[in-house]
């Protein structure tokens, strides 16, 4: 384990923690954004028609790779498995679960002795969470896919472009408000640009940092 003092999230330089404390009262705010860094992001590739591959993954993270494009399985509170391509998935874990999942996947896929790959990309991206009653409008300013509830809902994901930045986009349900919460996973180098764009696009609705 790396000493935590050494770790610096892609958006750490924006002082978001201090802003979140100052903007704690989010009532009446149109858009709420936050950085959720250091979730485990493990890229796996393999042949989903090979039962050994599926079994090895199930054994490692208790989830089967979804075969329906643009869907996610699992719970945000623990581990999720996101479809990226017909032979590619992303395991998303809580920060504390990343190392265990990575080791389990590497071990079980090695035992299965089949052509597959497991690559840790935890550091390559950060997660920007966008919620609040105007979240969908804000993202739609920069994203051409249809985010209407009839077309995009909890459990769905997409790799697409938000304001010129490639992202993995996922929607989670907010059980209290029934309003969508979006997770944007940009590559870390793009995170500042995307964050600044989001804040700018949200300004007319009122925006606070969580």
């Amino acid at each position: 384990m790396i000493d935590t003092y050494r770790l610096r999230s892609p958006l750490a330089h924006l002082g978001l923690d201090a802003r979140a404390r100052a903007e704690a009262d989010i009532s009446g705010t149109g858009v709420i954004i936050s950085e959720r860094p250091q979730a485990g992001l493990i890229n796996i590739r393999g042949d989903v028609s090979d039962a050994r591959f599926v079994t090895a993954i199930e054994k490692s993270i208790k989830l089967s790779p979804p075969t329906v494009p643009n869907t996610v399985v699992g719970k945000p509170s623990t581990t999720r498995l996101m479809w990226l391509a017909p032979d590619e998935w992303m395991v998303i874990t809580r920060p504390s679960g990343a190392e265990r999942a990575l080791k389990a996947l590497q071990k079980n896929l090695k035992i299965a002795d089949l052509h597959s790959s497991v690559t840790d990309t935890t550091e390559a991206r950060t997660c920007i969470r966008v919620s609040g009653p105007r979240a969908r409008e804000v993202i739609s300013k920069g994203c051409s896919i249809d985010l209407h509830p009839s077309a995009f809902g909890p459990g769905q994901c997409a790799q697409t472009v938000v304001s010129r930045v490639g992202v993995m986009l996922a929607q989670t349900a907010n059980s209290k408000t029934h309003q969508p919460t979006y997770e944007l996973y940009p590559l870390r180098s793009f995170a500042t640009y995307l964050w600044n764009w989001l804040e700018d696009a949200s300004a007319e609705y009122g925006v606070k940092v969580e």
Binding site: G46, T122, A124, L187
Partner: peptide, 9 residues
């Protein structure tokens, strides 16, 4: 299999 890891490091 190829995976881009430019930003991992």
């Amino acid at each position: 299999y190829l995976t881009s890891v430019t930003e991992q490091f």
